[in-house]
Design a protein around this nucleic acid. Structure first.
Lengths: 88, 88
DNA sequence: ATAGCCCATCGGCAATAAACGATAGGTCAT
DNA sequence: ATGACCTATCGTTTATTGCCGATGGGCTAT
């Protein structure tokens, strides 16, 4: 992975809320946006924005699943990130 | 390490130039700001600013050494970061 | 003590990020 | 086809970032 891509991922993780979201998603395996909104003191639009950033970095993927939107961790990428971090 | 601290570190690494600086410092063991300025297409003030961010995050430490300022990687923290990334 | 080197910091500017409320689009059940 | 639910996106505001040139302070050597 090149440094630009890696930097993008780090940037995505460079916010406490987004780290917490990633932890939560890993724990829950998959969940909908509403569940995440409930556990944070931020508005739905703010959480949605954080999720968008995480999606753009590739760490999180989301699929529309009926009326709900299902988010989950991209575990392969997460593993790859861990490898790349070891290389720094 | 709490998520706020971890986020700060990720944020510091969330720029390609700063990742490259970290790699370079790890390779060189220690070096002065001027050396780093030479290898990047940015001004001295810009590089200095990047170094400041890296210092604030703790990844890099710098000591004044005569007329020059010597930067080096905080290897213990870097190792700790790698552990913490594994925990995400 | 003057001149030169190294670099941190200031001020400025443009771009991006973080948060919000409001809106609107999609899906399901009735 | 209406209403309820879920969430992405828009528009706005304020804060932060990224970059620069210029300034100035600390050392060293002359």
């Amino acid at each position: 992975m090149d440094d630009t891509q890696l930097a993008k991922i780090f940037k995505a993780l460079g916010h406490p809320t987004r780290i917490k979201i990633v932890r939560y998603l890993r724990e829950m395996d998959r969940c909908i946006c509403g569940q995440i909104v409930e556990i944070f003191p931020y508005s739905q639009s703010t959480i949605s924005q954080h999720l968008k950033l995480l999606k753009e970095s590739g760490i999180v993927s989301g699929e529309v699943d009926g009326p709900k939107n299902c988010y989950c961790i991209n575990k392969e990428l997460l593993e790859r990130i861990k490898e790349d971090v070891s290389g720094i």
